[in-house]
Design a protein around this nucleic acid. Structure first.
Length: 341
DNA sequence: AATTCGGGGCC
DNA sequence: GGCCCAGAATT
């Protein structure tokens, strides 16, 4: 059933969804504000990151950087350190670049149109629509994983939602559905529906406010997605080398993964590999399944580009990826580092 | 059109 | 362990 059929009354659909949201919608910090800076921070944090994770970080970030000027004023290292643990660190670089542009070029004001917003780094179709609707209450469409799931089910649409054709269809559909009178609430509502009634594996259609408008025959089988890339297993060998009260760390180069962040130096030579490891970790990063060994080196290693000795009391302030921070805070390494504390 | 970029939470 | 996510940028 689509809005071309006599059964689909678009006004009734919008009203049912918005009224349900007014009753049942959950309270998030980013739903208590229309300040574009606060909305922008929440949207960048939430890109490919779950609400529970962001809830644990959002308020602290907003206290530290209450305005674009606050983030614009600190160095990149500080921004990365504050983002630590959230991953996809390009997001915080984009956020800081936006903050500086807003302050220095736009007199502290955000663009309120899609063309202006999409020119900013890290802002694509979704985040642009989110800012326009959540901050400015403009009738811009949004399509995220929640909206894609809801729309695919409502239309019983079985083309992969992550295909070009699927994306084109969903964006067009979202644009035709968004309520021009209540854009902010409508977009919040359709996302909320995807998180609650219209969840992935066990949709609760009995509680769904828009069930009369839904064509899904087997909702749990929708949406269809393209297959994921295969997981590759890799092994990394890194070193812990202590000199005086300092530890040898490497700064990750620009343009690569974890750019600007610090890590334990990598060594894959036979001598290092022959040393027993003091720590073994396994973790996943994007499509890689990593087994990582940290070897305790006592002979002075040859220093490489980007490697430097960092006093132990300075390491806390440097940005590190989660596995490295966890390694540093592990009891095993902690015991070794206690000697130089 | 495919790949790169993290990490935590959940099952 | 595998799966998922309030995506965007790059190749």
């Amino acid at each position: 059933m689509t809005d071309g059929t006599p059964h689909f009354n678009i006004h009734a659909f919008r009203n049912a969804l918005v009224e349900w949201f007014r009753r049942e919608g959950r309270d998030y910090p980013w739903r208590r504000t229309t300040d574009p800076w606060h909305i922008l921070v929440s949207e960048l944090m939430l890109q490919q990151t779950t609400i529970p994770t962001v809830l644990g970080r959002y308020d602290r970030w907003m206290r530290q950087f209450p305005t674009p000027a606050h983030l614009a004023a600190v160095d990149e290292q500080t921004a990365l350190r504050s983002w630590e643990g959230l991953g996809y660190y390009r997001r915080v670089r984009s956020l800081q670049a936006i903050a500086r542009e807003i302050v220095n070029e736009f007199g502290g004001r955000f663009p309120d149109n899609a063309e202006g917003l999409k020119r900013l780094p890290g802002i694509g179709p979704y985040t642009s629509g989110a800012l326009l609707s959540f901050a400015f209450n403009k009738a811009a469409p949004i399509v995220d994983a929640n909206v894609a799931r809801v729309l695919a089910r409502i239309d019983n649409y079985s083309v992969p939602v992550d295909s070009t054709e699927g994306q084109k269809y969903l964006w067009s559909r979202a644009e035709s559905l968004v309520d021009p009178e209540h854009a902010r609430e409508f977009n919040s509502a359709i996302m909320e529906l995807g998180q609650t009634c219209c969840s992935i594996s066990s949709p609760d259609c009995l509680l769904c406010p828009v069930r009369p408008f839904c064509s899904a025959e087997r909702p749990e089988t929708l949406p269809v997605k393209n297959p994921k890339p295969q997981v590759t297993r890799v092994e990394h060998h890194d070193i812990l080398y202590i000199r005086g009260k300092s530890v040898l760390l490497a700064k990750c180069p620009e343009g690569k993964r974890h750019a600007g962040m610090y890590r334990f130096p990598q060594r894959e030579d036979e001598h290092t590999l022959s040393l027993p490891h003091v720590l073994k970790q396994t973790y996943s990063i994007t499509r890689y399944r990593v087994t990582r060994y940290i070897h305790h080196v006592t002979d002075t290693p040859l220093l490489r580009e980007g490697e430097e000795f960092v006093p132990l009391d300075k390491i806390h302030g440097l940005p590190m990826a989660s596995p490295d921070r966890k390694a540093l805070n592990s009891p095993t390494l902690g015991k070794l580092l206690d000697h130089i504390r």
